[in-house]
Write a protein that binds this DNA or RNA. Structure first.
Lengths: 334, 334
DNA sequence: ACGGGCAGTGGAAGCGCTTACAGCCCAGAG
DNA sequence: CTCTGGGCTGTAAGCGCTTCCACTGCCCGT
C-alpha cells in the first residue's frame, strides 16, 4: 500500500494541490467548505505528507545530528538523552553517529551532514581538519565538552575549579603521593589534570604524569595494576569507570580502599554510588549538557551568528567513602 | 556559502547533469576525458549531492529509526550501540526517538516514520493501535524484546530458561520465601515471572505477586522497603537497577545481603559487577540484540516478507555474591 | 450603478537529483 | 563505400511538496 500523494488528495477532494497544502499547513485562506472536503479526503486516503517532498521544498531537514565516540558508559547516553529531548521539543529529529573503533568516519560524517540542519560534536571525536571542513561548508555546529572552535558555539561543564577543590580535599586528608589514571592531551580531562597539577604545585607537591588508558573499567584495571606498584596515597581517575577499574585492581593486590589507597572518579555515574566503597567523584550535569547543546544549535540554525563562545555548566564535588572521608551520608536522592 | 548543485557542476564541466550523475554514481558509460572534467568540477565546487534530492529520486531514505523508552540505564544504550553499528555498516543512518515521560508520542512516531525506510521498536514502548497503524502503512518494522507482531520480525533474548535456572539455583540454596520486585504484564519481564512462578510451583512453593515499580534504582529502593517488611529469603528483581535499589533498601533496614536476604537482578549491567555484594544476575547479549534487529530490518527493507518470527538470543546465568553463593570468582573479563 | 478590494482558488515554477529514452558519431564489417 | 552497432551524451520526465502570482467572483462603499 504505497503512501498516497498530495495529488491524489487534491483529486479526491476536487481541488488543486495548492489548496491541499494550504489547508494542511494553515497558510493562506481556505473556505470552511473546502477545508472540510480536503480533510475528508486526507482522512480517507490516510495521507501523510512525504517528508522528502516537504524538506526539499522548504529547504530544510528539521533534523539535527550528533556525533559521539561511544555509548557504552553512562556518560554519552545521558547527554544524548538530554539532547534528544530538547530537539524533540523543538520539532526536530535526531540522527546519531558513533565513531568508536570505526573506519570511514569522515565519509560517514559527511553523509550525516547532508541529512541535518546542524550538528553537535563531542570534543575529541573528529579530526580538526574535518571539523574545519564542516564548519566551512556552512553547517551550524556546536561543540560539546570542548572549547569552541571558531565558527561554532560550545558547551562544557566546569573542570578546573572542581579539580582544584577535589585536590585540595585530598591534600587536606593528608594524601601526598598522587597518581593520575587516564590521560588525554585535549578536552575536559586535560583541563582537569592541568588544574590538579597547578594545585599540587601550590602545595609543594610534584604532579605525576597521567597514565594513559582507555576510559573503561578494563582500562582502569590495567592502569591501576601498574600505578599501584608505586603505592600512591591516592589515585585520581579521569572518570568513574576508570576509578572502578582501579578499585578492582586494588582489591586484587590486597590493598584496601580507602584504607591503603584512596581513589576518586569523575562524572558521578550510577555505579559510583553503588560501588563499595562508594566513589568520591565530581558530578557533571550530563543531561543539561545535551539540552544546552540542542538549544544552542537551534539558535544557530535559526540564523544566529556563531560567537565561538564556550558555555560552562557548574559541577558538584561529591564526597563519598573512596577518598577516605569516612563520614557516612544519609541515602542520597536521585 | 550555499552548497552547490549538480547543475553548477554540469555547467562548470561543460556537460549535462545526467553525465555528472552517471560519473558520480558509476552508472552508465562515461569517457575518461569527461569523467576527468566532471571530477575536477566537483572538486572545485566541493560538490556533495543533496541527500534530499537523491532520496526523493531514489524513493528511499537510507535511514532507519529506533524507538525506545529511555537511555538512562545501560540497557538501551548498549542495544542502540549494536544497532547503530550494524546500520552504519549497511550504509544507513539512524534516527532515534525516546518516549519516556513524553507527550505527543504518536505524532512524533509518525513523523519519524516518514523519515526512515524501517523502524525498530522496543516492546512496551508503543500502544498496540499505533503499532498496527504503522505496520498497515507498509513500513518495515522489527520488534525488540517482545514477541513478533503480525507483519513484523522480532528478536529478544531468552527469558524462561534462564529464569528457571536462576530460580532452581536459589531454591537449591535453601531459599523458600520469595519476593518479586518490578512487575509488568507484557514483554520480557512477564515471561520471566511466569517461568519463575512455574518453577516455584513445581517445588511446592507458592509464587508471590510481583510488586510493580519503575525499573530504576529509586523504584527498586521503594519497592524494597515495602517488600522487605515481610522478611523474604530472597528478592528477585526485574532488572539490575531495581536490584541495586533493593540492596540499598536492605542496607537501610539493617539487613545484610546476602546474609539476611538474597537479591538477584537481570541484564548484568556494569554496576552489577561492581556492587557490593556483587550482583547475581542474567547476562543479556545487549549489543547483539541491537545488531540482530538492524539486520532483520535490513532484510525487510530489501523486500523480504515479514514472517512474524521471534528470534531468541541466548542468555547466561551469572552467579555472584548477592544470592548467597559465597564462592569467590576470579576477576571477570569484559 | 460602478469600481476597488479581498477572500478563495488554481497554475506553474521551482527544490536537486535519477534515469529512461533518444540521438549522435565513429569504427569495423560486409 | 555503405550499413550497423556500440559507446557516449543530452533531453526531459518524474519524485512530492511549497509558494508566488494571477485570476475570479462578490461584497461594499460611494
Amino acid at each position: 500500500m504505497p503512501d498516497s500523494t498530495i495529488y491524489e488528495v487534491a483529486r479526491l477532494a476536487g481541488v488543486s494541490i495548492a489548496t491541499v497544502s494550504r489547508t494542511l499547513r494553515g497558510t493562506g485562506p481556505v473556505s470552511a467548505a473546502t477545508r472540510e472536503k480536503v480533510l475528508r479526503a486526507v482522512e480517507e486516503l490516510r495521507f501523510t505528507p512525504s517528508r522528502l517532498g516537504v524538506s526539499l521544498a522548504e529547504g530544510r531537514h528539521a533534523a539535527n545530528g550528533i556525533v559521539f565516540p561511544d555509548l557504552s558508559g553512562p556518560y554519552f547516553g545521558e547527554v544524548l538523552l538530554g539532547y534528544e529531548e530538547v530537539a524533540a521539543e523543538l520539532g526536530r529529529s535526531v540522527l546519531i553517529l558513533s565513531t568508536r573503533d570505526r573506519a570511514g568516519v569522515p565519509e560517514t560524517v559527511k553523509d550525516l551532514a547532508t541529512r541535518v540542519d546542524g550538528l553537535v560534536v563531542f570534543g575529541q571525536t573528529l579530526p580538526d581538519a574535518l571539523l574545519t571542513e564542516l564548519i566551512d561548508s556552512g553547517l551550524p555546529m556546536v561543540m560539546l565538552a570542548r572549547e569552541a572552535h571558531p565558527g561554532t558555539e560550545a558547551v562544557r561543564s566546569e573542570n578546573a575549579d572542581a579539580a582544584e577543590a577535589l585536590t585540595v580535599h585530598l591534600i587536606a586528608h593528608g594524601h601526598r603521593a598522587f597518581a593520575l589514571a587516564g590521560g588525554h592531551d585535549e578536552g575536559d580531562v586535560s583541563e582537569r589534570w592541568t588544574a590538579v597539577a597547578r594545585t599540587l604545585g601550590e602545595h609543594g607537591i610534584t604532579a605525576p604524569r597521567p597514565v594513559e588508558c582507555p576510559y573503561t573499567v578494563e582500562g582502569g584495571h590495567e592502569a591501576g595494576l601498574e600505578l599501584l606498584k608505586a603505592r600512591p596515597d591516592v589515585v585520581m581517575c579521569a572518570d568513574d569507570q576508570v576509578a572502578l577499574g582501579v578499585i578492582l585492581a586494588a582489591e586484587e593486590l590486597g590493598l584496601s580502599v580507602p584504607g591503603d589507597v584512596a581513589v576518586t572518579g569523575w562524572d558521578d555515574i550510577m555505579a559510583a554510588r553503588h560501588a563499595r566503597p562508594a566513589l568520591t567523584t565530581v558530578r557533571q550535569p550530563l543531561r543539561e549538557l545535551g539540552a544546552a547543546a540542542a538549544r544552542l544549535l537551534d539558535e544557530l540554525i535559526a540564523g544566529a551568528e556563531p560567537t565561538a563562545t564556550t558555555r560552562v555548566l557548574a559541577t558538584d564535588l561529591v564526597i563519598r567513602a573512596s577518598c577516605g572521608a569516612h563520614q557516612v551520608h544519609p541515602p542520597e536522592e536521585q
